[in-house]
Design a protein around this nucleic acid. Structure first.
Lengths: 204, 204
DNA sequence: GGTTCTAGATTGAACGATCATTCTATGCTA
DNA sequence: TAGCATAGAATGATCGTTCAATCTAGAACC
């Protein structure tokens, strides 16, 4: 077998191994934080030796970076789905409940907050996070513009971007709320969010 | 000097020492995270030996807990100030700009996100955070109820709590937005936030 | 088809650094 | 001189990372 050639099954196997490490690392990071989780813990969770992890990742930072990069696709596929809907505005408003539920999922929220906190102090992570956010904002802005145009509104450039920021702040803030106040009335909050989004989309 | 008695100057000195440690620790936690910051770093930043820190705090966790407890008063004094204003509603809307500015302050936001991320995994920190949040929510709810009553609205119990959650999510979410998208148009976002808060307060 | 060979997969011990914490000795103040 | 404040060395654990040794699965040859 030459040094360059890799059989498909070998590539698959390597990819599966990487994924195995990333899943284990995500769990450890969620439970102990980026610096609180050790390679020893991650390797145990991934069911392999500590040294072997270094065959797939240069160092611990590279694992963090890889985890951050994985989480981009959800909002993109959502945005595409909404645009494909018959009535994009109502589809989006309809989807608010699901968005609230997702933001309150402690499983997802914990890791995402960990990532943002790390981005606040680690320039390498910050760059990845900001690029991903840029892509998501652009996608959401396109959807929003389509909705507003369909309703006959002609917003200037910055107005759409500001709507995107408000929407993002609401749902990202909800991740924090879920941790700070786990007893909140989720159904009532979902309804209030829905009403607020509707106002935002339909205002003159 | 008896074991129990402490002169006022001694108490002051001890309190100043504690504060010195907490300030240094806050800086270190903000820059490196809770687990990334070491006692050695904190002691160097505080200008004292590592061992001496253990005269004032049982362990590293106790420092974290003390830092979390310090950050309660801002929202409480704000809430009281608003209620003391001639027109509480307009005072609150007026204050949105300042609130947006504060949420986007990376200095504050970084540490607060670090605290919330820690609360998501550390039950001891979670308890402190949730109690502080409970107090803040109650205070904000009182202010909101006063505004709504003054305008002749009679909201049922849960409605006010849900408004509080939406407001909190917006401003706490803005801390995340400031990290994920530092280039956002802050003035435009502030205006949009102001309009949204106004709609929230004046709706039927 | 069975044997040999080989190169990547994998392990676990070893490394030096650093961690939180403890302890002892000394400085200082009243 | 008594007792707290303080420093800094010592401790044992654990950290991220490296490395030499072993395993294993398939290619090559007979």
């Amino acid at each position: 077998m030459s040094a360059e050639y890799r059989s498909p099954s070998e590539q698959q196997r390597a990819e599966a191994r990487r994924e195995q490490i990333l899943c284990a690392a995500a769990t450890c990071f969620r439970n102990h934080g980026f610096h609180g989780a050790s390679i020893a813990q991650i390797s145990k969770a991934a069911g392999m030796s500590a040294g072997h992890i270094y065959h797939y990742f240069d160092n611990k930072e590279a694992i963090i970076a890889a985890i951050v990069e994985r989480d981009l696709e959800y909002l993109l596929t959502l945005s595409a789905q909404l645009r494909a809907a018959r009535d994009t505005r109502e589809a989006m408003i309809e989807h608010v409940t699901e968005g609230v539920r997702r933001s309150l999922e402690p499983h997802d929220a914990g890791l995402k907050l960990e990532v943002v906190a790390e981005a606040a102090r680690n320039p390498q992570v910050a760059e990845i996070v900001r690029e991903a956010d840029r892509v998501c904002r652009a996608s959401l802005a396109t959807t929003l513009r389509a909705i507003r145009r369909a309703d006959g509104h002609d917003d200037h450039e910055g107005a759409i971007d500001t709507m995107v920021e408000l929407l993002a702040a609401m749902f990202e803030g909800l991740m924090i709320r879920g941790i700070r106040n786990p007893q909140m009335d989720r159904a009532a909050v979902a309804r209030r969010f829905q009403a607020t989004v509707r106002q935002l989309l339909t205002q003159p």
